[in-house]
């Protein structure tokens, strides 16, 4: 291990170390604490310019209630769910199929197709913005959930294919030889050999794709317009424009937007990190 592990028999040294790390952590997350503090204040305190004092009256619950009652955040939140959940599901299905074929079939052009998936997934969104927007307008999907779902599924399939292909390629060859010897069809091999082994990969990919799609802002403002379909990210930015001086409300809404990805992260931390680092680290 590097750095050298702190010796077990020196509890003072270990205690000082944890204290030091905690101090760095507080500085690291200071901007976030600032938002939490603001979200706990009353409008009066904000009006009086008291941003950094400890809240006189703890107002977090009331501010959240105001967010739900007086803004459309709840509606945006539901929109985000309607966009994100089907996208994640479809990405998992498509990328399992593409990853399986690219990992296990040696056809001509395999490397090229794989390179296109990998390379395409690095392209900044603005490069494809005009044609995608035009396409959605011309097929009548502009400003619908479906426009965002279709785009997110297409784009995330690039990264997901890279991920799945590497995972399936790392499975032992013997499994596939045995399946072939038994005369299993490609579908049977996929269904009974590959998919049962994919659980960790599917979990990791699900949490990553969820975070990517949930946090998208660019496509939300390019492909939607009306409040009825807008996701939370675009909603939050609108809210900030409309409630310029009510910082306590904006702060509460900001926390609300962050809740799903942060919760998902803490629930599935192991998978999230395994997913991000997969391919980066072998073994």
């Amino acid at each position: 291990m590097f750095p050298r592990p702190l010796p077990e028999e020196k509890p003072l040294q270990r205690g000082l170390y944890v204290g030091f790390v905690a101090l760095i952590l507080i500085l690291w997350l200071l901007p976030l604490f600032a938002v939490m503090l603001t979200a706990s204040k009353t409008a009066d305190e904000i009006m009086a310019g008291q941003y950094w004092t400890w809240p006189k009256h703890f107002n977090l619950i009331e501010n959240f209630q105001a967010v739900f009652a007086q803004t459309n955040m709840w509606g945006y939140f539901i929109n985000s769910l309607i966009i994100t959940l089907p996208s994640v599901l479809l990405v998992l299905v498509f990328s399992t199929l593409t990853g399986y074929v690219l990992a296990r079939y040696n056809f001509k052009g395999n490397a090229l197709v794989f390179a296109l998936f990998v390379g395409g997934n690095f392209l900044p969104a603005q490069i494809m913005m005009i044609p995608v927007r035009d396409l959605m307008v011309s097929v009548g999907l502009y400003d619908t959930y479906l426009a965002l779902i279709i785009f997110h599924v297409a784009f995330q399939t690039g990264f997901a294919t890279l991920f799945m292909r590497n995972f399936i390629a790392a499975l032992p060859d013997e499994l596939f030889q045995a399946a072939r010897a038994e005369g299993a069809s490609p579908w049977q091999t996929l269904r009974h050999v590959v998919i049962p082994l994919m659980r960790p990969a599917l979990a990791a990919l699900a949490i990553l794709t969820f975070t990517f799609v949930w946090n998208d802002y660019f496509w939300a403002i390019v492909l939607t317009q009306s409040d009825a379909v807008k996701p939370v990210t675009a909603g939050l930015n609108n809210l900030r424009g409309e409630w310029t001086s009510a910082w306590n409300i904006v702060a509460a809404a900001t926390l609300f937007v962050a809740v799903p990805p942060v919760t998902m992260f803490f629930l599935m931390q192991k998978h999230f990190i395994a997913g991000l680092t997969m391919g980066a680290v072998k073994g």
């Binding site: 498509f94 990328s95 199929l97 593409t98 399986y100 074929v101 690219l102 079939y105 056809f107 197709v113 296109l116 998936f117 395409g120 997934n121 392209l123 490069i127 494809m128 913005m129 005009i130 044609p131 995608v132 396409l135 279709i150 785009f151 599924v153 297409a154 784009f155 399939t157 690039g158 294919t161 069809s185 490609p186 579908w187 996929l190």
Partner: peptide, 27 residues
């Protein structure tokens, strides 16, 4: 043995090929 993989890869490849790759070149 060759049709099945083709069908498997088709949805993902078509979607990614048209919406991401082709759109970039259309720009």
């Amino acid at each position: 043995n060759w049709l099945a993989p083709l069908l498997f890869i088709a949805p993902g490849a078509l979607l990614f090929g048209t919406i991401i790759i082709a759109s970039s070149f259309e720009s």
